[in-house]
Amino acid sequence: MHIRSVAVALVAVAVTACLALGAVVTPNDVYHALDKIPLTHRAEIVHAFGVGFSLGRLVPDRTLRLVDRLAADKGTTADKEGILLTIANALENDLPVTLLIDKTEEGLARNVPLYVILNGSGGAVRILGLVQREKVLAAVRDLLYAKGIFCISHAGQATATSLPITRFDRIVTEVADVLCDYVESGASPLDGHLIYQRVQTRLENLSQLKQPTILPEDAALVLARIKPGDLTAVLLKVLG
């Protein structure tokens, strides 16, 4: 009886290990999953996603989960493709997309209509869609460029402050997220000092973790170079 129990346990462990090994998601799995949605611009999306996978800006298993959820949603195909195209466009424009994917997943979990996830809402409570968030990401990235903070794939280390892509992306993502949160809170984009304070708090909090998700020197670099007026300018540029 004892031997039989041990044998059953070993078989269970072996089966579990096989399942775990077989569960590794590849970019091809994502491309196959895209077939569940009748896309008009499939080739462009696949190309952009390929760039994202190669740079590490997209993770296959998370992307597959997103595509599966989109395919299962009852929204229109146009909105589904719009969301995928927005993410693809951000990747083609050399932007991090973590923020976009996360907001899409949250919106799907909240049963928010796809067109609101994509385009936002300008009602009494302002909701930023992926389209606006992509613009904020681009504006923040451009601001960092303007302040001499570059991604290592774009500038030589001898001429400017260049950060590895993951560190640069993290800064862009966090600053953009703070700006989006600020706008959705209904506060005035003209209050640059308040926006700067929010950015400062976020970056410092992340840099003070036991395993900092933003290095203290990166946070100090950004906070030293951007000014409150820069952040106001970003929001006015994006939101009109």
């Binding site: 949250e106 928010v112 809402s121 909701i127 959705e184 909090n205 003070q208 973790l209 036991k210 395993q211």
Partner: peptide, 21 residues
Amino acid sequence: YVHSFGSYNSVRYIGRVGKGA
């Protein structure tokens, strides 16, 4: 807390120095 989709999300920092984790 942050606004999100017309509602709220809670925010928590995990692993803060001097905050018990």
